[in-house]
Amino acid sequence: MDDLRRKKGLETKNRIRISTTTILAREGMSGLSAKKIADEAGISKSNLFHHFQSIDDILIDLFETITSEIGHALSNFKFKSLEEFFHMLGELTLQLSVEKEETFIAMFHYFNIALTNPNYKQRIVKLKQHLIKIFSDYILSIEPISHVTLTNITESIVITLDAFGMHYSLDRNKEKFMNQWKIQSDFYCHYLRNT
């Protein structure tokens, strides 16, 4: 009985995440309300607040889930070279921006609000730091790199992938994206090996 209750609770939390993402993508942060999220998820407001104390808690959970999914997606691969790693990052960015378009759009809405909201800004910085750590660990597993060089490049990778993903979302030209990403990733490989 407890397992069934736990499973149902996890399913409800996931519906809340999906509903929050949908509203964020469609209406931005100003469109979020407990009523809208509950209605979109097909649950009552009291059920929503049974799983999360506030909308802010939903957002924290949502973006921790997104970060975890990115790390999990990369963990399915073993990279033999930096070139292979960067190519996969490009492919993963394309996949996420297509398969999880709402999530991608929701992230940009959240990012825009974070520019003026210190609490949200702190979360975006935490997300960025987590991605930097994931990318650093993968790069170090492929080739030994100095700490300073690695820190400089991994932060640049996170920033660049955000921008590339956003621009890909505008024109949906995969070939153009991968060509531009190859130019960028060739620079990263050169920098990592020669600095």
Score class of each variant (00 low, 15 high):
residue 37 I to M: 07
residue 89 L to I: 04
residue 177 F to P: 06
residue 22 T to W: 00
residue 53 Q to L: 12
residue 68 S to P: 09
residue 54 S to L: 09
residue 146 S to A: 12
residue 72 H to N: 13
residue 27 E to L: 14
residue 154 T to W: 00
residue 78 K to E: 08
residue 158 V to K: 02
residue 73 A to R: 10
residue 68 S to R: 13
residue 162 D to Q: 06
residue 28 G to N: 03
residue 104 F to V: 04
residue 185 S to H: 04
residue 99 E to P: 09
residue 51 H to C: 04
residue 51 H to V: 05
residue 104 F to C: 08
residue 72 H to C: 09
residue 110 Y to F: 11
residue 33 S to G: 02
residue 87 H to I: 04
residue 16 I to R: 08
residue 135 F to T: 06
residue 98 V to I: 13
residue 90 G to A: 02
residue 77 F to K: 08
residue 103 T to C: 01
residue 34 A to F: 08
residue 114 A to H: 13
residue 127 L to A: 15
residue 19 S to P: 07
residue 131 L to R: 10
residue 116 T to S: 12
residue 58 I to E: 00
residue 177 F to R: 08
residue 195 T to D: 04
residue 1 M to G: 15
residue 190 H to E: 12
residue 16 I to C: 05
residue 101 E to C: 06
residue 172 R to Q: 07
residue 120 Y to W: 12
residue 18 I to N: 01
residue 2 D to W: 12
residue 93 T to Y: 06
residue 78 K to I: 10
residue 27 E to D: 15
residue 99 E to Y: 09
residue 104 F to R: 12
residue 115 L to E: 12
residue 86 F to Q: 01
residue 27 E to W: 05
residue 166 M to L: 15
residue 105 I to N: 05
residue 110 Y to S: 06
residue 40 E to R: 09
residue 21 T to W: 00
residue 130 H to N: 15
residue 116 T to N: 10
residue 15 R to Q: 12
residue 104 F to W: 15
residue 17 R to V: 02
residue 171 D to V: 11
residue 163 A to Q: 08
residue 80 K to S: 11
residue 191 Y to D: 01
residue 123 R to K: 15
residue 105 I to C: 05
residue 76 N to W: 10
residue 64 E to N: 13
residue 35 K to Y: 10
residue 73 A to I: 09
residue 65 T to I: 06
residue 70 I to P: 05
residue 44 S to K: 08
residue 21 T to G: 01
residue 180 Q to D: 12
residue 94 L to N: 04
residue 142 I to N: 09
residue 79 F to T: 05
residue 132 I to L: 07
residue 35 K to F: 11
residue 89 L to H: 03
residue 97 S to L: 02
residue 171 D to R: 10
residue 22 T to E: 05
residue 182 K to E: 11
residue 52 F to S: 05
residue 31 G to F: 07
residue 118 P to H: 08
residue 29 M to R: 06
residue 168 Y to H: 01
residue 27 E to T: 05
residue 185 S to N: 03
residue 164 F to V: 05
residue 101 E to P: 03
residue 62 L to G: 06
residue 4 L to D: 14
residue 79 F to I: 02
residue 59 L to R: 04
residue 147 H to P: 07
residue 167 H to W: 08
residue 61 D to R: 00
residue 134 I to W: 08
residue 96 L to H: 15
residue 90 G to D: 08
residue 106 A to N: 06
residue 16 I to T: 05
residue 167 H to G: 01
residue 50 H to W: 09
